[in-house]
């Protein structure tokens, strides 16, 4: 682990120097090489481990662990569960994504309040300890590594979530007239040097969906899919996306269905 981490630091240090040398093609190759080097030592492993300890610890007003949490495959069955979320849950009569369901379990099993859990779901500054939410989500998604994305769409509410998500994806608004589709609806598009997945293409959608949550090197933190949407909408100049909002769930359903059949490889590591 220590050795891997050193490789990772060297990769960061050499990137800017290398990319200054050549044309853009070289810069892109360098970034690809950098990504491969990073994959060798992903600090997300540490966050997953903390998430596992938190999951099994008796906590909250009810002094219970999350081990009986049902993420859709039955109480306590976590392997592969993330790859089949969002899905419909009869006990709440609605569709939930993984992050909504984890919070639901913290409320139902441990007695935490939703307000308390929603106050600060994402860590803010670099070097700050990851939030419990980020750690729990990293742990849960790590147990779906290698599982195929297979969101159920048989329940009408699952299908409706997809259909709303689709409309939201194409919804242009705000002072910049941006929709998700503005940047994520055409092949081969980039913002600066960052490649943008086109969600109308299965391979693009799979690569994006299966690699979130991810450890973001530039932020020194594991970021979740709810955060990914939150930060996209910030740059889209929309108002602030609320944690666990209906739009978050519907858009994750939309992206997940577009990514059906992809192989989960998260927490991944990104620039």
């Amino acid at each position: 682990m220590k050795y891997k981490f050193a490789t990772f630091v060297v990769a960061i240090a050499t990137l800017p120097a290398a990319s200054m040398l050549g044309a853009q093609q070289d810069a892109q190759k360098e970034i690809e090489r950098y990504r491969q080097l990073l994959a060798d030592g992903n600090p997300a492993e540490l966050v997953e481990m903390r998430g596992e300890a938190l999951w099994k610890e008796k906590r909250g007003p009810k002094n219970a662990s999350l081990e009986q949490c049902d993420l859709g495959l039955g109480a306590g069955k976590l392997e592969g569960a993330y790859a089949q979320l969002p899905r419909y849950f009869a006990d709440v009569d609605r569709v939930m994504d993984a992050e909504s369901r984890i919070v639901h379990c913290q409320i139902a099993l441990q007695g935490f309040s939703k307000d308390e859990l929603s106050k600060r779901p994402y860590s803010l500054t670099q070097g700050e300890r990851q939030t419990d939410h980020e750690a729990l989500t990293a742990y849960v998604v790590g147990l779906s590594r290698g599982a195929k994305v297979a969101l159920p769409q048989a329940h009408p509410k699952e299908k409706e979530s997809y259909l709303r998500g689709e409309k939201m994806f194409f919804f242009k608004g705000g002072p910049y007239d941006f929709a998700c589709a503005t940047c994520h609806g055409v092949d081969g598009q980039r913002i600066r040097l960052q490649d943008l997945p086109n969600f109308q293409k299965a391979d693009n959608a799979q690569r994006a969906f299966t690699t979130w949550p991810a450890y973001r090197v530039s932020q020194g933190a594991v970021r979740t899919m709810q955060w990914r949407l939150y930060d996209c909408f910030r740059q889209q100049r929309f108002p602030e996306l609320a944690f666990l909002s209906p739009a978050s769930v519907d858009l994750i359903t939309y992206m997940g269905v577009k990514a059906q059949g992809g192989t989960m490889d998260s927490p991944a590591i990104k620039r």
Binding site: G174, R237, F238, P239, L241, A242, P246, A247, S248
Partner: peptide, 14 residues
């Protein structure tokens, strides 16, 4: 129902 107003980013942007 999914967004909140922060700084200059008001709900009427939707």
């Amino acid at each position: 129902a999914s967004f909140k107003e922060t700084a200059s980013a008001k709900i009427d942007r939707l």
